[in-house]
């Protein structure tokens, strides 16, 4: 395949950045998108130019490290597919492909296509856990959990924390990510004791980090490589209202 690439190059956080054109020839349809970038980088290095910096690690769609906006869509054109699992057979010969980082206000661009997503870790640190001391757990079968509840928790837990949802959202909202973690933990009996506390704390951290609110566009779900459902956001909104009222009543006494 023959392709024209327009790739975002930015030296560091302070640089203003620009799209740079590259021509690629003889690309195999069986090659993955990142392997195509590997080949481009090899040719840049051979010429003595700096290769394009981009994040990647497992290359099997589970670590959440890759973070490319391809032709304006986070992770590119294929549904339920991370950029690392995208293959060149999804593109046409002669096509022009634009590659940019995941853009959103809370994620600063570190270099080229690499962004800083540490705000996601902060949201988890605010309450994305069940407080259980190592060694103090009861037997795994002590609390039966219905298959449907367990499946629901697993659907939510499948999130890989890539942040495509934020990059796709015009409000830079992290509601899909946050609601998925909260839904997983709050739906399980183990997570119930910290339910409200977890929810309020994670939402407030989300606001503090500068993520916007959800206005029900659903772009997040459309680009999510794991198909995380927007229903989790609805649940979060409902539970947030309940928890806030409970909290308010407590303060009034």
């Amino acid at each position: 395949m023959r392709l024209k690439l327009k790739v975002w190059r930015q030296k560091d956080q302070l640089d203003s950045g620009r799209l740079v054109d590259y021509q690629m020839d003889n690309i195999s349809e069986d090659s993955s998108f990142l392997e195509m970038l590997d080949l481009l980088n090899e040719s840049l290095v051979e010429k003595g130019d700096e290769p394009i910096a981009f994040d990647h690690d497992c290359r099997e769609g589970i670590c959440g490290m890759c973070s490319l906006t391809i032709n304006g869509i986070p992770h590119g054109p294929e549904k339920l597919t991370t950029a690392c699992q995208l293959h060149m057979r999804s593109f046409k010969n002669g096509e022009t492909i634009t590659i940019e980082p995941f853009r959103s206000k809370p994620f600063k661009i570190t270099k080229d296509l690499i962004v800083d997503r540490s705000a996601f870790d902060k949201i988890i640190e605010a309450g994305g856990f069940i407080s259980v001391r190592t060694g103090s757990a009861p037997d795994g079968n002590a609390i039966p959990i219905s298959k449907s509840d367990s499946d629901y928790a697993m659907d939510a837990a499948a999130c890989i924390g890539c942040a495509a949802c934020v990059a796709a959202c015009k409000n830079s909202s992290a509601m899909l990510f946050t609601s998925a973690k909260i839904s997983q933990l709050n739906s399980l009996p183990q997570g119930k004791p910290e339910k409200d506390r977890r929810l309020l704390s994670m939402v407030s951290e989300m606001d503090r980090s500068g993520f916007g609110n959800c206005t029900n566009y659903g772009e997040c779900h459309a680009v999510c490589p794991k198909g995380i459902s927007v229903d989790f956001i609805a649940n979060l909104n409902r539970d947030y209202a309940k928890a806030s009222v409970k909290n308010l009543l407590k303060t009034i006494g």
Partner: peptide, 22 residues
């Protein structure tokens, strides 16, 4: 055996049977 207990308590959604057991 302790690992499974620990992970279940942390909210790891292991596959379950209809009866609710692992």
């Amino acid at each position: 055996v302790n690992i499974i207990d620990q992970c279940v308590a942390q909210g790891v959604p292991f596959a379950r049977e209809y009866g609710g057991l692992l």
